[in-house]
Design a protein around this nucleic acid. Structure first.
Length: 905
RNA sequence: GGAUCCGUAGCUCAGAUGGUUAGAGCGCUCGCUUCACACGCGAGAGGUCGAUGGUUCGAGUCCAUUCGGAUCCACCA
């Protein structure tokens, strides 16, 4: 292309790209177009020996300096693409799973950025919660006591004391300060990894779930829920972990199969009838409040409404009917205890039964014998349980039953599901306690329906993941329990008045003003009170519980979006465009975020959600720390390079659990290297950006049919890859571009080499240059989201700015090129045929062909004829005879190949 | 028990609205130091698409049943 068009400025300077870069926060457009286009053309600067090594460091630095990932705050919602990124737990360990899923998000972020969106891509840290709590305790040798006063001058010990009893006991505020200090170091390690991986995160937008802003957002949201009635406190039976001594939410349950045994023993009816029940928890016998059977169960009709007496403890209990009783289980009649499990709670509530709780928060039976045991024998039997753990009490009860010959047969061993806290190792108990809840539809059909509707409002990628959300919402059996009896976390911002007797008034908590946040009720007096009134009758007490970590991380859209702090900013990013996350936390993170946005903003928090799969080890098992099969991500990054690892991650579809596979990284590495080498080749042929075809007049340079055919194929690839990306199918987009690229290097480049060197004159050479420039330009952009390092490296050899702020290619730019996308594949068929002949003859590929016949159906023969010159040159054929023969759809047959002397030329 | 996904060459995976001889990469075999690339290049041999039955002129691609694998939810009587 000899002339240069002032109207059709090529490539990166298309209006989209220019707008894109000109809106950067700092106002310095990375790729601004000077007024005189001729002055802009630069000679490519191609290294002698291109390599991937060192690109990560070099380019990551350049990107940071050029601030190309900076969110432009002066913007409007329609220009923004906002991502609610998962904040990693920095005190946790690095995992290839991080690399995998964060790359998938980054690929999407980069695509949207190139499409001209102002991408809001923050990355925060989840340093709130139990993992950090434990790490800080052990690292410094400190323990938190929320009732201790804050000491502004506190410094932690140099070395943690050997004996835990000698650890410093510090206030919650002091503890939080230590957490903040330590997590900063952990976060640096993650940030380094993510930077090296090439995540296009805007690091100026970061947040931490324990920082003041996050605590403020979390408390503000909580207060608004309280005021609107979406949050409330209640004294109720709750799932309780006896080791951590905290209540836990349904979302944190894990059912594990454990061995147990059915113990069969009888209650006695008035007429002396023995009513046998079977239970895996005989120790709960003294807590029994009723027996229950199904209303239709004929065996027990005569007992409904009567009372029976328990063995050992002589308690008279009613026999009741309830639909949840399963005639198939055990003897079909069950003892209801307060509380053995959540079904007991349902029965207790719906049948309005008394409460006879014996198991305390420490998981032990009450030391005092309860007053409902009113025979001397019952009292004496209870003494053998008093103060015992659940496990020992069970043994004691069974022993007593045996002693008194009350056990019917031997216990029958079974395996059954038992509820555990996901981080705990003892079965959960049900304990009555005062807790805070957020309404989540668990006990309200209308809200449940509304939240299901929110789920349908969201676009799920892949779509089938929605059913997990629906399964979860439909299975909720109570509101979301958000209070935790832990120390480290966001304090629940309430105080309670103490009446004249010193009893707290839970019905009417004292709430702070939002302007006072964040507050710590354990350290600060309630508004309107003096600190000296804490704990005094007529004074106040501060809530000591903290919010569950999900109650804060469910607000990441609000935290990152400066909700309540900068309303204009918030309205520019919320509702977000995308929530990427793992499918294993749909019931926790995804659902809870929907619950909060629904209550706070009457909105979905995002329009789309992308669920990443898990990483499996090469044996197809889930990689997890407990299995000890975790791979540290820095290894593959160093060994294969970031682009290679990203290629592996981007080859997996959303939602697909994927094996950790080195082979795939090697392929990615090969592709990146090939990109460098092919680019070097093209640019050393005199290709510059002025050769890029992007409209009717520049298209005139494409005089050769094969060159136009390549561009026609490229046009189709751009079109298809774009629509794949729009559908979040980056993996398929990558595959399309990749296979086009390989046919480009393996076939097209080989076919046109001679012509490119000028063997057919200037016009034919200019035509190749136009095709090469246009293809290289587009391919670099198409690969840029997945291979940010190699593509930007090449981009900087011959273009200005960064490929990452260039515009995504548009098929429309190539509309003016009249070519057939079928031509190159046909010519490649003939090329392969001739190569095969040489291969079979076991000669060098550059061996000349004296003569050969190409037999093809008419349409293909036409394509071959148009490219016969290139085909002859590439195969060193002196005489190729073209025969038009056969039915449409048939392949190209290469026949009668006469090879020449290998060393003839 | 409810729900979802998956089952295609030795391996890892593609195969949109059903349509001509089922694709890729790796691995394997053979050949080639071809002036972008030996971290390379060329060629080749490997599947009838878990099974059965249906719908259809035609099914890997839709329906039913079934077997196998995985996951989510429920499940402590």
């Amino acid at each position: 292309m000899s002339d240069l068009h002032t109207a059709d400025t090529p490539g990166t300077d298309s209006p989209d790209a220019f707008e894109n870069t000109s809106t950067r926060a700092d106002g310095t457009a990375a790729a601004a177009a000077p007024a005189d286009p001729a002055a802009r053309v630069r000679t490519p600067d191609v290294p002698e020996k291109p390599a991937l090594e060192g690109l990560e460091e070099k380019l990551a630095q350049a990107w940071a300096q050029e601030e190309i990932y900076r969110f432009a705050e002066d913007t409007q919602r329609s220009d923004v693409y906002s991502i609610d990124t998962p904040p990693p737990t920095a005190s946790g360990s690095l995992h290839v799973g991080h690399v995998f899923s964060y790359t998938q998000t980054d690929v999407l972020a980069r695509f949207h950025r190139m499409r001209g969106k102002n991408v809001f891509y923050p990355l925060g840290w989840d340093d709130n919660g139990l993992p950090t709590e434990r790490r800080v305790q052990n690292y410094y040798g400190v323990r938190c006591d929320p009732s201790k006063p804050y000491d502004p001058d506190y410094t932690p010990p140099q070395q943690p004391a050997k004996n835990q009893r000698d650890w410093d006991v510090i206030s919650r505020q002091n503890f939080i300060e230590l957490c903040e200090a330590l997590t900063v170091e952990d976060e640096k390690v993650f940030e380094d990894l993510f930077t090296r991986l090439g995540l296009s995160v805007d690091w100026t937008q970061t947040y931490r779930t324990i920082d003041d802003d996050s605590r403020t957002v979390s408390q503000r949201a909580f207060l608004r829920h309280v005021r609107s009635g979406d949050a409330y406190t209640a004294l109720a039976p709750t799932l309780w972990d006896v080791s951590f001594r905290t209540a836990v939410a349904q979302a944190e349950l894990e059912a594990k199969d454990r061995p147990g045994a059915y113990h069969r023993y009888a209650f006695t009816a008035g007429d002396g009838e023995q009513v046998f029940i079977e239970t895996t928890r005989p120790e709960l016998l003294p807590s029994c409040v009723a027996l229950v059977a199904h209303p239709d169960d004929e065996r027990y009709q005569h007992l409904f409404g009567t009372t029976v007496t328990s063995p050992l403890f002589d308690v008279e209990v009613e026999v009741r009917a309830h639909r949840l009783a399963d005639p198939e289980k055990g003897s079909g009649i069950a003892m209801i205890c307060t509380f053995g499990d959540m079904t007991d709670v349902t029965w207790w509530r719906e049948l309005d039964l008394p409460t006879r709780t014996l198991i305390g928060r420490d998981g032990r039976f009450s030391v005092e014998a309860p007053d409902w045991l009113n025979t001397p024998g019952a009292q004496e039997n209870y003494r053998r349980l008093a103060g015992k753990t659940v496990h020992s009490a069970k043994e004691a009860v069974v022993e007593m039953l045996r002693e008194q010959d009350l056990l019917d047969g031997e216990p029958e061993p079974i395996t059954h599901a038992v509820h555990f806290y996901e981080k705990g190792d003892k079965p959960l108990e049900v304990v009555t306690s005062r807790q805070w809840y957020i309404r989540n539809g668990g006990r309200d059909a209308e809200r449940r329906e509304a939240l299901l509707a929110r789920g349908r409002e969201l676009q799920w990628h892949p779509s089938f993941m929605r059913s997990r959300y629906e399964n979860w919402v439909e299975g909720l059996n109570g509101d979301w329990l958000i209070s935790r009896q832990r120390f480290f976390g966001v304090p629940i911002p309430v105080w309670y008045r103490l009446d004249a007797q010193g009893e707290p008034d839970y019905a009417d908590p004292i709430l702070p003003e939002e302007s006072q946040l964040p507050v710590d009720p354990a350290a600060q007096p309630a508004p309107g009170f003096e600190e000296s009134q804490r704990g005094e009758a007529g004074g106040f007490v501060g809530e000591l519980d903290v919010l569950d970590t999900w109650a804060t991380s469910s607000l990441t859209p609000q935290i990152a979006g400066r909700w309540g702090r900068d309303d204009r900013f918030f309205s520019q990013v919320f509702p977000y465009d995308l929530r990427p996350q793992g499918h294993d936390i749909i019931r926790t993170w995804l659902f809870s975020t929907v619950v909060r946005a629904h209550a706070l903003s009457d909105s979905v928090p995002w329009t789309d959600t992308a669920l990443s799969g898990w990483i499996l080890d090469p044996d197809r098992k889930k990689m997890s720390k407990s299995k000890g099969n975790v791979i540290v991500p820095t290894e593959p990054l160093e060994q294969f390079g970031s682009d290679a690892v990203r290629y592996w991650a981007a080859s997996a579809k959303l939602g697909a659990d994927t094996a950790y596979e080195i082979a795939q990284m090697k392929i990615g590495r090969r592709l990146a290297i090939k990109l460098l080498n092919a680019s070097k080749f093209a640019l050393n042929l005199g290709v510059t950006e002025e050769h890029i075809v992007d409209g009717p007049s520049s298209a005139q340079a494409l005089t050769e049919p094969l060159d136009r055919a390549l561009i026609a194929e490229l046009r189709a690839v751009v079109e298809r890859a774009t629509s794949c990306f729009e559908d979040y199918d980056y993996a398929r987009a990558l595959q399309l571009v990749e296979s086009f690229f390989w046919s480009f290097t393996d076939d097209y480049v080989e076919l046109v080499k001679d012509r490119a060197y000028g063997s057919c004159g200037e016009q034919a050479q200019a035509s190749v240059r136009a095709a090469l420039a246009t293809t290289l330009d587009a391919v670099l952009r198409l690969f840029a989201p997945v291979l940010p390092f190699a593509t930007d490296e090449v981009w900087r050899w011959w273009r200005s700015g960064s490929v990452h702020v260039a515009a995504w290619p548009q098929a429309a730019d190539l509309d003016a090129v009249d070519g057939s996308a079928q031509m190159l594949p046909t010519v490649a068929e003939a090329l392969a045929g001739i190569r095969r002949a040489k291969s079979e003859a076991q000669v060098k590929q550059r061996t000349p062909v004296r003569s050969a016949r190409l037999i093809a159906p008419a349409a293909k023969a036409g394509h071959l004829e148009a490219a016969l010159g290139d085909l002859s040159a590439a195969t060193r054929s002196h005489s190729l005879e073209l025969v038009s023969e056969g039915e449409a759809g048939q392949g190209v047959v290469v026949a009668d190949v006469e090879l020449g002397d290998a060393d003839a030329d």
